[in-house]
Amino acid sequence: MSPLKPYEVFRPTLLAEADPDVDYLQAIQDFASQRIEAISKSIIYQMQRIDSVGVFEGEAPKLRSLWDEWCWYQHRYGSDCGSLSQSFEMSLNALIEGTVEELGQAEAVLLSTAIAEDQTDMPNRSDDEISAVVRDVITEAAGYRSMSRFEIY
């Protein structure tokens, strides 16, 4: 089996506004964008290494990984499928939360500061906000992936 290439993701949209006249704020924004990209790619890489469970076997038998299934689910089903949606959401959330929890305190505070729209309580660590941005980046990447090679004609 050939090694997988890192999956390309888009730069995250960060809600905090950096003052362009204050260099360190822009540096925090740049760091956070790059780090969120790297975390998202890492989670996609993990998903590529988890075997598919075969839930879409009848309609797309070539799906080989959780990443393939997540992308198929995003293209074909969205989030309105009851227990199917719950299963996929729980799987992705577990991967994201586990990765975010492993971040060091200083890094998590910097990311939280760059992400938080409401800066009143900053700097504080907010794993929920970091996880939400990572999830958005991963979901957007899945939405842009072409699934035509998996379709049955």
Results as ranks from 00 to 15, higher is better:
E101Q: 14
S65G: 05
H75N: 14
L84C: 00
F150D: 03
R11N: 13
Y77M: 11
A18T: 06
V53R: 15
A142V: 08
Q74V: 00
L92G: 13
D136V: 04
G78P: 04
Q86W: 05
M122Y: 00
I130G: 13
A108W: 01
V9N: 00
A106I: 11
T120S: 15
L63F: 13
E59F: 00
K41W: 01
S131Y: 06
D121T: 06
Y24L: 12
L63S: 13
R49V: 09
S131M: 08
E57V: 10
D121A: 08
E151L: 14
L14A: 04
N124K: 14
P61N: 02
V53S: 13
A60E: 01
C81R: 14
Q46W: 01
R149F: 04
D118R: 09
S42R: 02
E69V: 12
D118H: 10
A27I: 05
T120E: 15
Q29T: 11
E37D: 12
E107R: 07
W67E: 07
P6G: 00
S126L: 02
E140G: 13
G54F: 03
K5Q: 11
A108I: 08
D136S: 13
C81W: 07
A18Y: 07
I28F: 07
I39S: 09
I152C: 08
E117V: 09
G82R: 10
C81G: 07
G54Y: 00
H75M: 12
P20H: 03
Y24N: 09
V55Q: 01
L103S: 07
C81E: 14
T139C: 05
N93L: 06
V134D: 03
F88Q: 08
T13S: 03
D80C: 03
S126V: 06
E89T: 14
V133M: 04
S146D: 15
D51P: 15
